[in-house]
Amino acid sequence: MTTRRKLLISGATLMTFALTLPAMAHHGWGTFDTRHAFYVAGALTRVRWGNPHSEAVLRLEPAAMPGNWLQRPLPQGASERDGRLTMASARPYTGPHKELELVLAGPDWMARWGLKRPLQTGEKIEAVGFLSAGEADRLRPVMFWLSDGQGIWQQLTAFPQQPEPAPAR
């Protein structure tokens, strides 16, 4: 086979594969509006557990802020400063969506933050986090709580903007 022919075949192969080529990328908090934190609670209707990060769909239940919210201890591994700023910024989610897609950490970080098993469909959780600036139905928790009260921290990189205190209730 001539070099030219090999090159041609390679070019054709390249085009054939062009539509199957993904990429790896990971984003910090840059695409989320970290000025306003939202509190949500409900049951998970879909879980995609694993690398590069987990995602889950949360069916929202109407929720007011829990009692003693600001006294609630931060989860294991939390940043005291960012954790408290997020708690102080939290307001109940009152947006139009009945379900929110949760952007979660990958399994290795989950394990370091105390969750060594996959989340399950049907499981009830509470979460506080920030909405995506571009997609209003995506929420990235800063922390969430299992039904037994265990809190799981989720923040690794700095917030681009400091969370602002919630309006007085």
């Binding site: 030219r4 090159l7 041609l8 390679s10 070019g11 054709a12 390249l14 085009m15 594969f17 062009a18 539509l19 080529l21 993904p22 990429a23 990328a25």
Partner: peptide, 25 residues
């Protein structure tokens, strides 16, 4: 970003084909 990535790969492939069928001869 997906259409950009796959579209640019397709463009690179077309460019390869034009070059090798064309001036590279």
């Amino acid at each position: 970003a997906a259409p950009w990535k796959f579209g640019l790969i397709g463009l690179a492939g077309v460019n390869i084909a034009i070059f090798h069928f064309g001036i590279y001869r």
